[in-house]
Every structure is written in C-alpha cells, then in structure tokens.
Amino acid sequence: MPEPREHGRDAMSGPANAAFSELYSAYAAGRLDPAFALLLETQSMLRGDVRHALAVSETISGVVLEMAEPARMSAGAATRALDLIAQLEGETGRAASRQPEDRELADLPDPLRTPAQDAFAAAGWQGTAPGIRRMKLDVGSELDVELYRIQPNARVPRHTHGGMEFTLVVAGGFSDESGSYGPGDLAVKGPDDTHQPVGDPGDVCFALAVRDSGLRFTGVMGMIQRVLGR
C-alpha cells in the first residue's frame, strides 16, 4: 500500500523523530486527554517508531520523577493504593474472561479491544451507509471517539468537519482525495477539508476516529442531516 501523502500529517502520523514532543511528554506525564491517549496507545501497537518514542518519553519522565524532592505520604496512602491496584486487577480479569459477541473485535490491538467490546455490548454497531458501521466509544473524554468498520470499496458519505478529526487506521485501509492510509497511519482533517473515504479492496477496514466536533455531510446526506437537526 502506498505511503500517505504529507497532507495532514503530524507527530502521530509521520516518523516519530520528535521523541521529546509535547504529545509524548504529556502522555508520559499522564496529562493527555483519554481519547488521544487511546489513539496513541493503539498506534504504538502498530508502529515501532511510535512505540520507541513513548518508551523514551516514559524513561525521561521516570528519571525526572526520581530527581524530584520526595513528598510525605498521607496516613493510609499505601493501603489505599494497594486496594486500588487490586480493584483494577479484578476489573481486568473480568474483562479478559468475557467472550465478545463480535469476534472481529477480539483481533483489535489491546488498548482498543476492551472499550470496543464494551461499546458493542452496550449498543452494538450502528449503520451509517451501505457497508459502513460505527460505534461510539466511552473512554472518559469530552471528545467524540468512534470506531468505524468499512467494507472493501464501501464509501463513507462525503463530508466536511466542524473542527479537527484524527482517524487512525487499525486494520485494512482506506483512501480519499489526499492519499491511501494503512494500519498505523493517521489521517488528520480540519474544517477546510472535504473528503470521502473509500474502503480499500481486500480486508475490512477498522478505523478509530477522534474529533472535537461533528461531521457535516454534503449532498443528499447533508440535506437529511439539516432536516433532522443533527
């Protein structure tokens, strides 16, 4: 599959040569929005350069933390921490024991698998257009987070964007007016971009989208959207 063109690339889509960027630093410090943290963690499972950049940033954060002046712990802090760890381990065990109803979700990268399975159990896939399905994921963010399933050659309705949209290809691939995107590639679109993603021939495309505003469809879909007030 050809490499995506440079249009719309940023630190998460191009080679991770800025290992000390604000993006990775914010993640290592635990200050990155949960939606972008999921996007970055999922991309790191697909691309070695991103995985390396995260490891470097986490190492640097660890060194800085060790150099910081230690703070006195409050009474009972250690016990509360151990209780929280036990609770988290219990939730992880319960999630691992679930048998997903949609077998395709079991093949998703680890960071994405559980929120996708939770969304499937809660509401399942929603139809958008022929060959296009989506699920809204709840990851504790105010941003819109959706997982798309695009059949080969299926067309997402042409649309613009109310804000910024970051779409990570998790499996398969899609193409639009700016190029072709495969696993680990990130398509970045803004309010000035109008495009129509089309699933590449071959495998089903799964894509994780994070946006700060809704899609604005054009053509007939746009008229329907305006009538419904969405």
Rank of each mutant, 00 (worst) to 15 (best):
M1A: 14
P2L: 05
P4Y: 01
P4T: 01
H7C: 05
G8W: 01
R9E: 10
D10W: 06
A11Q: 04
M12E: 08
S13I: 01
G14N: 00
N17F: 11
N17T: 09
S21A: 14
E22C: 07
Y24M: 00
Y24C: 01
Y24I: 01
A26P: 05
A28I: 00
A28D: 02
A29I: 03
R31G: 02
Q43A: 12
S44W: 00
L46V: 10
G48P: 05
G48C: 07
V50E: 01
V50M: 01
H52C: 10
H52Y: 08
A53H: 03
A55L: 08
A55M: 07
V56K: 04
V56I: 14
T59G: 03
I60F: 12
I60E: 09
S61E: 13
S61K: 10
V64W: 06
E69P: 10
E69K: 11
G76W: 00
T79D: 13
T79I: 10
R80E: 15
R80A: 14
A81P: 03
I85L: 11
Q87C: 05
L88N: 08
A96S: 11
A96F: 10
S97Y: 07
S97D: 15
P100D: 09
P100E: 07
R103T: 12
A106K: 10
D110E: 15
A122L: 08
T128C: 12
A129K: 04
I132A: 12
R133V: 07
R134C: 13
M135Y: 08
L143C: 08
L147W: 05
R149L: 08
R149C: 06
I150Y: 10
Q151P: 09
N153E: 15
N153K: 12
A154K: 03
V156E: 15
V156S: 07
R158M: 13
H159Y: 06
T160W: 09
G162Y: 06
G162W: 03
G163C: 05
M164K: 11
F166D: 08
T167F: 02
L168R: 00
V169T: 06
V169L: 08
A171T: 14
D176E: 09
E177V: 13
G179A: 01
S180M: 08
G182D: 07
G182H: 06
P183D: 03
G184D: 02
L186R: 02
A187N: 11
V188G: 13
D193A: 06
D200C: 15
P201T: 02
D203P: 12
D203I: 09
C205S: 04
F206K: 00
A207E: 03
L208K: 04
A209W: 02
R211F: 13
L215D: 14
F217C: 06
G222E: 02
M223Y: 14
I224P: 05
Q225R: 02
R226Q: 12
R226S: 11
V227Q: 15
V227R: 14
L228M: 11
R230W: 13
